[in-house]
């Protein structure tokens, strides 16, 4: 067994596993990169560490100096990862969290020592971002790393996730991941296109705009600055929507290959299957998809055990992706 000096040294180098038993076509291999193996449990460990290290390099955060506070909007995984990193580095973290996330996420934040500031559930992540901006403006002494705009977010994936994928799967033809902040897609997508230009990059997103009822007009909408700064529209080849029922169905189906994963990963698997269906019968393809996290944080949604109609209905009011 390997021995490590710090939990932070366990971030990255995640395994890839073949889930082609679920592929709709025998000529299409589907490989899942298991980001739930990161120590705080998600792909966001990479981003959290990169955000903090970049701030320390820039002198925004000073290791060892007391009473340094960070604020960050998050619907869960970034907050949890950042809380773990901050505790190890001696920083205090305030997470602006929509009230309607799964209770496990709230408990994990508290377990890692974060302070939670509630934002409106009906406004979803949009509301958390808005409130974090307001609080940051009122408290300039707090450090706001702002994952949606910070170049360290895609950089983490450009320098770690992307190279890992190409080293482990040099034959990759398609990369499929969730949109969110767009950090994973922009960082990995750019790395893969630079080193293997034929790779197609597919984004998957849930119909969040259907769920968020707190919008007054389209002008309250939001596109992550990272997506704009990295010319996301030019980088992506396709963007597909995956609805809650498909997400939950594929979250369940992934257990057939032994993977107990979060619901966003079910959505990404659904996207990978859509991608596979479009591959010509005469061509071979290898799709790499991101499994963002494991299923533990979502047990309270009943996603694996309850009637699927009930779970889908519940999905309308709970942020679980």
């Amino acid at each position: 067994m390997a021995r490590y000096a710090s939990v932070l040294d366990l971030i990255g180098d995640t395994p890839v596993v073949d889930v082609s038993a679920l592929s709709p076509k025998s000529n299409v291999t589907i490989l899942a990169k298991l980001e739930g193996r990161n120590p705080a449990g998600s792909v966001k460990d990479r981003v959290a560490l990169a955000l903090v290290e970049a701030a320390e390099r820039d002198g925004v955060l000073i290791p060892g100096q007391p009473d340094q506070t960070l604020i960050e909007p998050s619907s869960g995984n970034t907050g949890i990862a950042l809380a773990m990193v901050c505790r190890l580095r001696g920083y205090h973290l305030k997470v602006v969290l929509p009230t309607n996330v799964s209770p496990e996420r709230r408990q994990l934040l508290l377990a890692h020592g974060a302070e939670i500031i509630d934002s409106s559930g009906t406004e979803g992540s949009n509301g958390a971002v808005r409130l974090a901006h307001e609080l940051s403006a009122k408290h300039p002494e707090w450090v706001f790393l702002y994952q949606y705009a910070n170049p360290a977010n895609p950089w983490a994936h450009y320098t770690t996730t992307g190279p890992e994928i190409l080293a482990d799967v040099p034959e990759v033809t398609h990369f499929v991941a969730g949109l969110g902040t767009s950090g994973t897609l922009m960082g990995v997508g750019r790395y893969l296109k630079e080193h293997s230009p034929h790779v197609q990059v597919w984004a998957v997103e849930p119909p969040s705009g259907e769920i968020v009822d707190g919008l007054r007009s389209l002008d309250d909408g939001y596109v992550p600055p990272i997506f704009i700064d990295n010319r996301g529209e030019q980088l992506l080849d396709r963007k597909v929507i995956v609805r809650p029922r498909e997400s939950i169905e594929w979250t369940r189906r992934l257990t057939e290959v032994g993977l107990f994963v979060g619901i966003s990963s079910g959505a990404i698997m659904a996207g990978a299957v859509k991608c596979a269906r479009e591959v010509d019968d005469g061509a071979n393809a290898t799709i790499v998809m991101i499994v963002c996290d494991d299923g533990w944080k979502y047990l309270s949604t009943g996603a694996w055990s309850d009637d699927i109609d009930d779970v889908v209905e519940r999905a309308r009011t709970t942020i679980y992706f």
């Binding site: 998050s74 949009n126 939001y222």
Partner: peptide, 12 residues
């Protein structure tokens, strides 16, 4: 055809 407002994403 589905029209959707672009909003901030979640944990991805």
């Amino acid at each position: 055809i589905t029209l959707l407002p672009a909003v901030a994403g979640g944990a991805w």
